[in-house]
């Protein structure tokens, strides 16, 4: 597995805490994500992994702590600002636009790159049409890359789950993000689909240099793909390091075996 070229930190999470009423989903969690790496976040069910991603892209606001992204520190950030800053994500339960085709879903991911306004789009002529075609080219590259040419015009609600996950990845890629957050991209997939998805993730990381934060339950996948792994349990970070270090960590073994605290 190729290591990232630099040690430059893209995202720093510092002392983040988040509670839902009595449930403390995150407690004083700190870790960083380096530019160009695949960073896995693992942990048992309810450990706070999804909550962590939600904090990173501004969907939840932490009660304490701060996030530094590309050198700018913020306690609160709106989802829209996160998107504009270059953070894209996929969801644990696919969150596609159900009434739209696969193509339109991915095209929607280009929204922030669209320059021509309402009146031009209404005329759909000259520069406006040229821009639309240009976006279509970029999107078709992604469609080729994800091998979903055959289903581009199909409404996503009609697609099987595995393909929906791929379209959702495509929509995130269309944003050309600097940081890609993937929440269990392989959940519910069979072995073959998992292998395809692993390949796509590695390719995205290699070819586009996209930094990836990956939540995944399948240990084999995590160990294969990631450069570094952070482990959460009951909202606390209990380990952080290379896959090998984490695998041997006693606290991690205990957490996964369900040893009482």
């Amino acid at each position: 597995m190729r290591a990232p070229d630099t040690n430059e930190v893209l995202l720093q999470v510092e002392g983040v805490a988040l509670a839902f009423g009595g449930v403390r989903a995150l407690r004083d969690v700190s870790f960083n994500i380096r530019k160009g790496e695949i960073r896995a976040i693992i942990g048992p069910n309810g450990a706070g992994k999804t909550s962590m991603l939600n904090v990173i892209n501004g969907f939840y606001h932490p009660d304490h702590g701060a996030i530094t992204f590309k050198g700018r520190t913020r306690a609160r950030m709106q989802p829209f600002e996160a998107a504009r800053g270059g953070i894209a994500r996929t969801f644990q339960n696919v969150a596609l636009f159900k009434g739209m085709s696969a193509l339109d879903n991915i095209m929607a991911g280009r929204t922030l790159k669209v320059r021509r306004g309402l009146l031009w789009q209404m005329l759909r002529y000259g520069p406006a049409l040229a821009e639309e075609v240009e976006h279509r080219h970029r999107v078709e590259e992604i469609i080729d890359f994800l091998e979903i040419e055959a289903i581009r015009k199909v409404p996503v609600a009609r697609l099987p789950y595995g393909l929906q996950k791929r379209v959702e990845l495509g929509r995130a890629l269309a944003m050309e993000p600097d940081l890609l957050l993937l929440d269990e991209p392989m959940a519910g997939m069979n072995l073959e689909e998992k292998e395809d998805m692993s390949r796509f993730i590695i390719d995205v990381n290699n070819h586009y240099g996209t930094t990836i934060a990956l939540i995944e339950h399948d240990m084999a996948v995590v160990m294969d793909l990631s450069h570094r792994v952070a482990v959460l349990d009951h909202g606390v970070k209990i380990a952080d390091g290379t896959p090998d270090e984490v695998k041997r960590n006693q606290a991690v073994i205990d957490a996964y075996l369900g040893v009482a605290h």
Binding site: A83, F97, M100, A108
Partner: peptide
């Protein structure tokens, strides 16, 4: 066009729409 896709995205899932900008 893009504006139409924005409208439909809001219609189908406004949270996800916001997260793609």
């Amino acid at each position: 066009g893009n504006l139409g896709r924005q409208w439909m995205a809001i219609r189908d899932m406004d949270i996800a729409a916001e997260l793609i900008g």
